[in-house]
Design a protein around this nucleic acid. Sequence first.
DNA 1: CCAGAATCTTGACACTTGTCAAGAACGAAT
DNA 2: ATTCGTTCTTGACAAGTGTCAAGATTCTGG
Lengths: 212, 212
Amino acid sequence: MARQVTGAARRVADAAEVLRDEKFNARRIELAEAALETLGELGFARTSLREIAQNSAFTHGVFHYYFSDKLDLICCCVRHYKAKCVTRYDEVVATATSRDELTEGFLAKLAATLQNEARMHRLWYDLRSQAMFEAAFRKDVLEIDKSLEAMIWRIASRYAELGGKRPVSSPAALYALFDGLFQSALLKHLAGDKTAIPELLDEVRRLLPTVC
Amino acid sequence: MARQVTGAARRVADAAEVLRDEKFNARRIELAEAALETLGELGFARTSLREIAQNSAFTHGVFHYYFSDKLDLICCCVRHYKAKCVTRYDEVVATATSRDELTEGFLAKLAATLQNEARMHRLWYDLRSQAMFEAAFRKDVLEIDKSLEAMIWRIASRYAELGGKRPVSSPAALYALFDGLFQSALLKHLAGDKTAIPELLDEVRRLLPTVC
DNA sequence: CCAGAATCTTGACACTTGTCAAGAACGAAT
DNA sequence: ATTCGTTCTTGACAAGTGTCAAGATTCTGG
């Protein structure tokens, strides 16, 4: 009987703890999201915790309550960023019923991303470069890179399938190609080059049928 | 007569000034080279002028005598880095007399670069990312990117020529592909992945005949 | 309603940063 | 040898950094 009571109490306590953990985690993500704003604006090198706090509804002390240090915060940002990114094209892949439809859906999303989320993406490239110096970032970055590669591979596979073919190169090479093109277009776009986006689209439109 | 004297004096003075300028510039490059050491070690975000000075034979004040500010120094570093980089494969292109020879020469240089100059190259990717945030870097970075694209194109053209073919894709796409592969391999290599280099070589060996 | 825990604010700390200026050391022309 | 312009060193400055701890505030279970 006593054991049952303690068992029940334990369960209640556990549930409470889970709830607290969830709340804690939700807050972490809120903070990470706020941090991503400033990081996307200034880049890793120029972003300080106080700057992040000032551009958000929080005070700089809160960040140390929820994160052990700055790296911890930024790792959380990177991980959170991932979840948003890697499913970007999945709807297009799922709904397209022809090669043309897939192409146009892909290109449209590509252009929109470059246009509207340039800051988030330059941050991604920044952090991926940081991972070459800072070991703490590597695990997460490599994982995201893998997810992005898989994402591109899903598009290419579907595209090939719709044409009754198979992709002619490896997932790694395909990802390298598209990522390289995107990165280059992003830089040009940020530099004010109006032709960057249409040229990327042309290039991809030309490339797709030759690689899949 | 007086005019001739002043003319001669002017010429002497000019020569002296040119000499001083050259010396000044040589010093700038020395300093830039020293800075590149530390930048390659720590990355842009973590490198301070004092750190650069401490890892070199100079004191931190000298840098302000030769450069107007930190950005000026780093721009000089980037520009200097370029000169070293863009001719890396030219000898191979010039001397190879068959597709195999070109392939093996290219792959050997690729592997050596990844092995021995990883720090310089991660710095390049770091600075290219910085250019997405800092407008002052963009001009130089875009220019270097163009030079690297041309370098890759020279290899591909020669490779195609040796097989009596023509490259099947644009210079931009080819550069994106190889740069993307290199960047990914570099990150894996720095993360301690022993297979990164051989896998890159395999990939490139497989790719070359299909793109040219 | 109240005690104790969770959450948040504030201000301080030790340290690093880029920049600059005063002057020392040096070199070359007179 | 002296003088003058170049080159370099040193030390200081203000601003900004991550981190932390003491206390205020808010939330919550009893």
